[in-house]
């Protein structure tokens, strides 16, 4: 029975990376981008999210648990890999390596990010507003780490999406895999630009 279990868990891990974790990332970046429209727009968007009924439960069930599962099992997946990027200078091998590297970066970033911007807020009772974020990003160290973490997450999502399509046997041949590579590259660039733009809105 351990056999099916291994297969199922690993497939769920792949699945969870897109649904809901990837979707959540997209929504999150979308909401962040309201900052481009100014302080009021951003606060309205955040306020809307904060007023969703049963938010805490949704956050735990739809976001917290899947991310925790994806991250913890992903750590195991990363652990059982022995990469050798300087021995095999192949494009896909580098992508594979970066996927694991960004996994670790993203995990550290997310833990820190959730801690300072979500959990600490619960204890201190501060409201989440444009100004809080702005104050926070004013620290150049935080800002640098934020950008690195953002790009890592976006890479991990885009390359993960490509990988997801192979893992589930959707893109099989070299042509389809090449096409999705282009598509995922575009997604990476667009999301990266969108994310950094939102950050820029806080510090301009």
């Amino acid at each position: 029975m351990s056999q099916t279990y291994h297969y199922l868990v690993r497939r769920l891990h792949s699945f969870a990376g897109i649904f809901p974790v990837g979707i959540f990332l997209l929504m999150h970046l979308f909401i962040n981008s309201f900052a481009l429209r100014g302080e009021a727009a951003y606060n309205r968007a955040v306020g809307f999210v904060n007023n969703i009924p049963g938010l805490v439960y949704l956050e735990i069930l739809l976001i917290g648990v899947p991310i925790a599962f994806h991250a913890l099992y992903g750590l195991w997946v990363t652990y059982v890999t022995k990469t050798s990027i300087f021995q095999y200078y192949y494009f896909r091998n580098w992508m594979f390596y970066l996927q694991r590297l960004t996994a670790v970066i993203t995990l550290i970033f997310v833990v820190w990010h959730v801690w300072v911007l979500r959990i600490v807020r619960v204890f201190t009772g501060t409201e989440m507003t444009f100004l809080t974020v702005q104050a926070w990003l004013a620290n150049p160290l935080y800002l640098t780490f934020y950008i690195i973490g953002l790009l890592a997450a976006v890479y991990h999502f885009s390359n993960g999406l490509w990988s997801f399509l192979v893992t589930w046997g959707i893109t099989i041949g070299p042509e389809s895999q090449r096409l999705t590579l282009y598509v995922c590259t575009v997604i990476f660039i667009l999301l990266g630009i969108a994310g950094i733009n939102s950050v820029y809105a806080f510090i301009r």
Binding site: R10, V80, Y90, N93, G169
Partner: peptide, 27 residues
Amino acid sequence: VDCGNAQNCERVCPKLIPLVSIIAEMN
């Protein structure tokens, strides 16, 4: 499921077996 899509296998296969597509299809 232990395949991680690094695709080194196909690059080094001396018989040029399309291992990547084969694994994807078996997926």
